[in-house]
Design a protein around this nucleic acid. Structure first.
Lengths: 346, 346
DNA sequence: TGTTAGCACTCACTCTTTTAGAGTGCTAAT
DNA sequence: ATTAGCACTCTAAAAGAGTGAGTGCTAACA
């Protein structure tokens, strides 16, 4: 049995209607509100076929049909039109966003949090956003003695991201030595990435350091830590409570589980890696069981990746019920993505 | 009508029982499970009095009684015994905590987050913790040129808290000038607090700066920002979903409202200031409507303040239903507070 | 005078039954 | 191939009945 044009149309109508109303849709509704001019009985036959094909589901015998995961999949892959009429509204949104975002480019964290909040408010779903994985290369390093026995080590990375650490010295250092170390580090490592700092370089440095070999090693550790940027990955969420707007998610058990997942940010990293379901343009859609996070199997997740430069990127995402307004969400994500790209490039 | 010993005992029995069971408690229960040897009828009479006095409430005509806010207040103020037997258990807990905490003193943020998690797990309520308001005085300042036209400004505060900012210069600076500025700032401002940096000092500095007056001003702004520490106040929450364990909080509307409040960390700052209900030892208990946050009027909140040094402190708190196990919560908070004090003093 | 037994009464809860409505599947006619 | 018609299914909401915990009041008692 194949999906002919009529079945396709009917399926589309069912899904559209369900997305709008959130109620299972019956044959009569489709019969009335499509231009197919078919009686409900005919629709019923087709629906039975569609169910057999796995695109729709009957919650119980005497209910209408709702889309299955497979149905949704088909919808987002083939049915979601990018309506041109909506561009108008969209354009307005873009501008608002721009104004909103450009106010405070300073504090990246705050910017991201606000962006998440904006997204959550706009869509009425839960949003999440991860800090970008910045900076691959070293730009500048500054060592200075804060007080006796304490060496302040400031590392500036490409993209003007700054890390610092105070190192406890076991002996005193004179100003001259510190100056020398500063020059040594900056001359040797400037512009290099984690990978480019190899053993050859390191041994050259330790050789030059003379009696301060140990210290150089310690400082290199700090640099490594900074470059790895492991501990920088932060994930912000917003609009958690929006899930209560959707009865299918808001019973105590499910809500609790979901909110728990959102609180344990670490669990969310899975969402930020997988690119399997990417559909060009850096938008990924996970429907139901497709999501890499078990607890979200009753949700859909849409993510987008914003980029600063090659390979330096973060992720924004929306989590909502499977019957979310995918078009709106994708629109919003695209807009925000563009805005973020723009802001960071500046 | 006064609260004689018998009424006191009965009230205590009612509250204890209610805290344990979570069910309204009836006269028969009290009659059986106290050593007063009174019939249920007598208890009923007393209960009627206690209700008139405002200590207990009847949810509906044919239900037992539950404590009112006033009743809880009396309980935490006068009935909560610090049972010595519990000290044993407590001692064990302390040690566990110590091991747990001493692992990672490095990353304060992580430490606090983990502490919050620990508290939430231990108590089965929601926990919150605020970063300490550090550092009042300036320890060290370091200016250095990262690349042409960009000046890196690192400010180290008492307590080794580090802030940095990159300043865009409108003109080039030579190494000598930067050195001079470094010396100027460190000599003039070292060890001073926000308040001590007065206009006299500032004008002296700008005078000495010569053509770089404007730059000095900019740097002073950075210093001021760092010293104010406004943007440092962070609040972490954990165990949000624990509220679902308490039916009186977990209906959709209330839970949503609560979680929303917890998400909007800014709203929580109110909890961290007010000291009105402090009961020695830095433990504050807010019952129901007493809390400064409207949305928590069905909860009780217990907070403790941990201190680094005079006036430098943060707050830990527990949010739960009014029928929370106050003794346990207070124990836990005390323990954690002590641990944090110890860790930070080290 | 304080305490108690006894009893009628209240009210939330649970369980069952009823009803209404939406929607289906099947059959026979077109 | 499509449709009208009808019996059937199932949910959700409403209505009703029974249960039990707990009360308030009264009258008797020590």
């Amino acid at each position: 049995m194949e999906l002919d044009t009529r079945k396709f149309k009917i399926l589309q109508a069912i899904i559209k209607n369900y997305l709008e109303t959130g109620e299972p849709v019956g044959s009569r509704t489709i019969s009335k509100y499509t231009d197919l001019n078919l009686s409900s009985a005919t629709i019923r036959n087709e629906m039975a076929d569609l169910e057999e094909l796995g695109y729709i589901i009957q919650p119980h015998t005497s209910a209408g049909r709702i889309p299955s995961d497979k149905g949704y999949r088909l919808y987002v892959d083939q049915m979601m039109s990018e309506k041109e009429e909506e561009l108008n509204n969209r354009e307005r949104e873009v501008i608002e966003l721009k104004e909103f975002l450009s106010e405070k480019v300073e504090k990246v964290e705050e910017l991201l949090q606000d962006t998440a909040k904006l997204l959550a408010n706009n869509t009425n779903y839960t949003s999440l956003i991860s800090t970008p994985k910045y900076f691959k290369s070293l730009k500048f390093i500054q060592l200075s003695q804060v007080e006796s026995g304490k060496l302040l080590c400031v590392v500036v990375l490409q993209g003007n991201v700054i890390k610092n650490k105070i190192i406890d010295l076991n002996k005193e250092l004179d100003t001259e030595t510190i100056l020398k170390l500063n020059i040594l580090f900056n001359n040797t490592l400037n512009g290099l990435t984690m990978e480019e700092i190899n053993l050859a370089l390191i041994s050259r440095m330790t050789a030059q350091a003379g009696e301060h070999t140990e210290l150089v090693r310690t400082i290199l550790d700090v640099v490594a830590q900074a470059l790895s940027g492991d501990d920088d990955l932060k994930i912000y969420t917003s609009g958690t409570t929006n899930i209560f707007k959707y009865p299918e998610l808001s019973d105590s058990a499910k809500a609790s589980e979901l909110i728990c997942t959102l609180e344990e940010k670490k669990l969310l990293t899975n969402l930020l890696v997988d690119k399997e379901h990417s559909e060009g343009k850096g938008i990924q859609i996970y429907i139901g069981a497709e999501t890499p996070i078990q607890t979200m199997k009753d949700c859909s997740v849409v993510t987008a990746t914003y980029e600063l430069e090659d390979g330096v990127s973060g992720t924004i995402g929306i989590i909502g019920p499977k019957r979310m307004d995918y078009e709106k969400v994708v629109e919003n994500l695209k807009t925000v993505k563009e805005q973020l790209d723009a802001v960071f490039k500046k």
